[in-house]
């Protein structure tokens, strides 16, 4: 369908020669910097800023100060420590959800595209069911129906991203299948598995990298939304979404509680979007648009 046509450009040339100048993409570099900072915060943050994110160590609802640069929350917990903990949560959610989508989506796309026929039809029906819902609504339904917890939220987010990966991989595989080198490989007696791994998969890697980066931001945003609705990470554990939910009750007393977690989400998501855009320019400048557009959604 439309996916095939929109993504056609990605695979026309199997091995792209990368011009170094392309890597000097300012937006992509900014994105890479933000993403690195986020990863560093998640990994090292708690060793540098040693306050316990769950320990009510101070007065309630304090404004930012040297002792608590992001202020304290309704129980007197250090907001910076909670933001740092939230960065671990967000990255974990992104990694797990994307891994689910990457593995399952790639598998479905590969099998459907490579074998075609009935298998293709059946697998694409499953994808259609997933596509029968707007992403966030599907995430709400799945996370709500599995029971509210972060594990289930990650699963739900993974599931809603599967179709995007499956379709892009399938389209790419269909494209590659038309090339002569596949036929030669077959003629030389290569097994299905070997052909898929050696010849088909490498040609799908470039779009997969871009998709992974872009959908990382979708995963983080969706987890924040689910936690905000009480369907993701459960309080008292800190996650950016549920911090914002709590903050809503204290808008009059402490505006800071509403500011920092929201900023954190925005900056990190922006980082991944910048990086994704930059990578796209590098790996395939012909594809326009961005997250959620035709190329990636359908």
């Amino acid at each position: 369908m439309t996916a095939a046509s929109a993504n056609a450009g990605w695979h026309a040339v199997p091995r792209r020669k990368l011009i170094p100048a392309r890597w000097r993409n300012p937006i992509g570099l900014v994105g890479a910097a933000i993403v690195s900072l986020c990863i560093l915060t998640a990994v090292l943050g708690r060793f540098i800023w040693t306050n316990d994110p769950n320990d009510p160590i101070s007065n309630r609802l304090e404004a930012p100060s040297w002792a608590h640069p992001f202020g304290t929350d309704d129980l007197g917990r250090d907001t910076l420590a909670r933001i740092i903990h939230g960065s671990q949560v967000s990255l974990e959610v992104g990694l797990v959800a994307i891994s689910i989508a990457l593995v399952v989506g790639t598998l479905i796309g590969l099998l459907a595209g490579y074998f075609g026929g009935f298998l293709d039809l059946a697998l694409m029906r499953i994808i259609d069911i997933l596509f029968a819902f707007p992403g966030l609504v599907l995430a709400i339904v799945i996370a709500g129906l599995l029971g509210a917890s972060r594990r289930n939220a990650m699963l739900a987010i993974g599931v809603i991203i599967i179709p995007a990966f499956a379709r892009v991989v399938r389209a790419a595989v269909l494209e590659v299948m038309g090339f002569p080198f596949i036929e030669s490989a077959r003629a030389l007696g290569g097994g299905h598995l070997r052909i898929m791994l050696r010849h088909v998969l490498p040609n799908v890697i470039a779009p997969l990298i871009v998709l992974t980066t872009l959908y990382f931001s979708t995963a983080i945003l969706t987890e924040a939304a689910l936690s905000f609705l009480g369907l993701g990470t459960q309080p008292p554990e800190a996650a950016w979404g549920n911090m914002l939910q709590t903050a809503r009750s204290y808008i009059d007393q402490s505006i800071w509680m509403s500011i920092f977690p929201g900023l954190a989400i925005m900056v990190v998501v922006l980082g991944f979007n910048f990086l994704g855009d930059g990578l796209r320019d590098v790996l395939d400048p012909r594809v326009g648009g961005g997250v959620g557009d035709v190329a990636t959604k359908k």
Binding site: N54, P56, D74, R77, P235, P236, Q245, T246, S249
Partner: peptide, 8 residues
């Protein structure tokens, strides 16, 4: 929210 807060 007072429940998770008390639990904490």
């Amino acid at each position: 929210l007072d429940f998770p807060a008390i639990a904490t």
